[in-house]
Computed example of a mutant assay.
Amino acid sequence: MEIAGADVRRVLGIAGELEDAGSERELRGRALGALMELIPADAGQAYRLSVDGAGVSALSVPENSFHADPRVIYDHPLDHPLTEIMLETPTSAAWRVSDVAGDRQWRRTHCFNLDFRPFGLRRHLVATAGAGEGAVEGYALVRSGADFSERERDLLGFAQLQLAGVERRLADRQRLLAFSAAALALAASHGWGVAVRGEDGRAQPLNALAADLLTVVRDDPRLGHEHRFTVRDVEVWPVPPAAPESPALVLLRDLARGRAAARLFGVTEQEHRTLRHLHDGRTATEAARRMGLSPTTVRGYIASLHRKLEAGHTAALLRRGRDLGLLTD
């Protein structure tokens, strides 16, 4: 059966309203309420079952309207006339059901509009599920009285496809936030503050170190440029967007501690700058170009650094600089 355009718009509207959900539980709770308005029902359940049977989760509205274990839809005995029929109709995309004995392997079955009225049960259930990577999940609706129509079953199936997409995007956002938090913590542990730069050139801090350092450099007009610069013992490194939809970042590093350590060991300002260039992987020629000096002058600074820090080669020089606090990773 084809779904009417008005129904499609209603489903897409529901999915759009759920895009701002902050957690999976919030999303599923709001989705259940919306589905029960879309397809009139007495109760609804969002479920997830791991393929290996180790993980089971469910959210029901109203609470306790479904069996606590989503694998059990009706408490039907093994000798129930429909038990064998249910267990003998497997499909690749259907609800899973178990018997109440609990020791019998549960399997995928059809459970659309099962009529238990002759046995005193007057609830009808429509449920669909899709097998993802290692899990079967979806939404189920129940109501008393009238059966769910073919149109309602198709509409629920279409809605579940859209809701699955919303859940995937939420999971992607949550993973990205987790990665971002880890990256910010790593940056801070290495002495870097991180800020995001808006289209107006203003930088907003993403970690505490950036918030502190931005108070020093916030009004500097060079923040809106693409070139690295140093002002008042703060090194500022603009990072252009990695992709059109990515933000521009600003890395900030406090040089005051390193400079104080450099002075303690008799290292001049220019020698310290040279050491930092070497630490960033630049050659003497590249460092000279950055500093606006001749390569010969920079090589002289490097020779002086070797003497003052008692290091015989470049790797030892950089290690000594880190050990003495002149450099941060």
Rank of each mutant, 00 (worst) to 15 (best):
V142H: 07
R257L: 02
G120S: 01
Q45T: 03
L161H: 03
H80P: 11
R320T: 15
A287C: 08
F265E: 10
A262N: 03
G5T: 07
V8I: 15
L32P: 02
L114A: 03
A58T: 08
A68E: 14
T328W: 03
S65D: 11
A256L: 10
A34K: 07
E286A: 15
S98G: 14
R273A: 15
S246F: 15
G13H: 03
V97Q: 09
E24F: 12
E245L: 13
S50V: 03
M1A: 12
G193Q: 00
D220P: 09
T215M: 11
F119T: 01
V97N: 14
I302W: 00
P62D: 06
R48C: 13
M86H: 14
D42E: 15
T296R: 06
A58K: 05
E133P: 13
V239F: 13
A6P: 03
G29E: 14
P81Q: 04
F229H: 09
N64T: 12
L326V: 13
H277M: 05
R107K: 09
A178P: 09
A256C: 00
Q105V: 13
A248H: 02
H306W: 03
F148D: 11
L177I: 10
E84C: 00
G138L: 06
A288Q: 01
L184N: 06
P247M: 07
S189N: 09
I39T: 00
F112D: 13
E226G: 07
R9G: 02
N113G: 03
V234Y: 09
Q174L: 15
D220K: 04
D280C: 00
H227T: 12
Q45V: 11
R9K: 01
T297Q: 11
H313S: 00
P118Q: 15
R107D: 05
R319D: 09
L324C: 01
C111Y: 14
V142K: 06
S57L: 01
L223I: 04
L184D: 05
G134C: 11
E26D: 15
L213K: 04
H67P: 05
R153Y: 09
H190G: 03
T297W: 01
D147Q: 11
S65N: 15
A129I: 05
A135L: 10
R28A: 08
D172V: 14
R232F: 06
D20R: 12
Q162K: 10
L249I: 05
T328G: 02
P62G: 01
G292N: 14
R25T: 12
G120M: 07
R123F: 13
Q105L: 06
L278C: 03
V194P: 05
S189I: 02
E88I: 00
A41D: 04
S149T: 14
L326D: 14
A6R: 15
G16Q: 12
R282W: 01
I73G: 04
R175Y: 09
Q204I: 06
G281A: 02
G312V: 10
E26H: 04
R202E: 15
T297I: 06
R202D: 12
L317A: 02
A46P: 02
L309A: 08
G53V: 11
D200W: 00
V194F: 08
L186F: 02
G102W: 02
S60G: 00
A261D: 03
R153I: 08
A129S: 12
D20Y: 08
N113R: 02
A260F: 06
L18N: 08
D329T: 06
A54Q: 02
